[in-house]
């Protein structure tokens, strides 16, 4: 009996040692503990965001630099409009944008920005006009078994394009030695999406809502009249007069740079939106505005107002399911 217990105890010790080692190794991945971010800001102002991070390290590794990615609307151009400092028990310093020529270790040739987008998509935003902007610390840290902790202080200008905006901001961290990898020893990255929509107010441009489903979406979100523009009417977002309508048509008015107004409001193949599948309730039409509105070479469209109608043209759906038209401004910023 004693002998039996002795043998089992020996095995138990080995097992415990293995589990302890596994826990030690598995512990070692960067973690975002919290993000302290305002909920609203004025267009063009600079906000302060504090990202608290915890970095347990295993022994014998590095030195690696901490990498931070921030998901924001492209038009904010935060690569040029952001300063980041960090501080913690191990020291302080700055974080700078990672140049496109510096590729991540496990990114299969992608840039850091593309690697982040491939891994984390656009974090629940509904319009694909967001970008991940990567930054890295000026100093590296070694993986020596200690746990590093600290705060990343981000000062970034929001709404640089002057548009009122609703969007979900997100943050991700990893290190240059691992990238966004997981293995039996741990997960070497951490993502934090701020689920409450961040709101930019006081801008002069249109409201760009990345957060809430829209009755209509224009793709690309930023375009000129010489682009091919796809308009989508999503009948699943709300019940409208066009519920059950077999065909949906575009009724649009273009305002040109020479002060002219061009109205195209007919129910023909030219204006017909095609349902993406039999029961999808999503209708699409792609136009080249230049010919759709019959512009001369000298004319350009400044903005377009539009409704969706049924075959007869009597049932009209406008912005927010009201009688007001949807408005789309042709611009690149």
């Amino acid at each position: 009996m004693r002998s039996y217990l002795h043998i089992k105890g020996k095995g138990l010790w080995k097992f415990c040692a293995f589990v302890t080692l596994a826990i030690l190794l598995a512990c070692c991945g960067e973690e975002i503990q919290s993000v302290d971010q305002p909920s609203t800001a004025v267009a063009g102002s600079t906000i302060t965001v504090k990202v608290t991070v915890n970095i347990p390290t295993a022994s014998n590794g590095g030195p690696d630099n901490l990498v931070l990615g921030i998901l924001v609307p492209k038009a904010w151009n935060i690569k040029q409009n952001t300063t980041i400092t960090y501080s913690g028990p191990s020291g302080s310093g700055i974080m700078t944008p990672i140049q496109e020529s510096v590729l991540p270790k496990n990114g299969n040739g992608l840039t850091w920005a593309a690697y982040m987008k491939q891994t984390f998509k656009i974090a629940g935003n509904l319009i694909d006009d967001m970008e991940w902007v990567p930054f890295q610390t000026d100093k590296g840290y070694t993986h020596d078994g200690t746990t590093l902790s600290g705060v990343l202080n981000i000062q970034m200008k929001v709404g640089a394009d002057g548009n009122n905006t609703l969007c979900k901001l997100a943050y991700v961290i990893t290190d240059t030695g691992n990238g966004f990898t997981s293995n039996q020893f741990g997960t070497y990255y951490s993502e934090k999406i701020v689920e409450d929509c961040f709101e930019v107010t006081g801008g002069s441009g249109d409201l760009i809502d990345f957060c809430n489903p829209q009755l209509t979406i224009v793709d690309p979100p930023k375009s000129q009249d010489n682009d091919l523009v796809t308009m989508t009417f999503d009948g699943t977002v709300a019940s409208t007069q066009l519920d059950g309508a077999p065909e949906v048509y575009l009724c649009a008015t273009a305002y040109t740079n020479d002060g002219k107004t061009i109205n195209v409001c007919e129910q023909t193949d030219k204006t017909k939106l095609t349902q993406t599948s039999a029961v999808s309730k999503r209708y699409q039409l792609t136009i080249w505005p230049h010919t759709f509105f019959g512009l001369t070479d000298a004319q350009t469209i400044v903005k377009m107002e539009y409704f969706l109608t049924d075959k007869t043209g009597t049932k009209k759906v406008g912005y927010g399911n009201t009688a007001a038209p949807f408005v789309y401004t042709f611009k690149c910023q």
Binding site: K74, P220, K222, S223, Q224, D225, N226, D227, L228, C332
Partner: peptide, 9 residues
């Protein structure tokens, strides 16, 4: 890019 520079065809 016939329209906005960010739109690539």
């Amino acid at each position: 890019s016939p329209g906005c520079p960010n739109n690539s065809y």
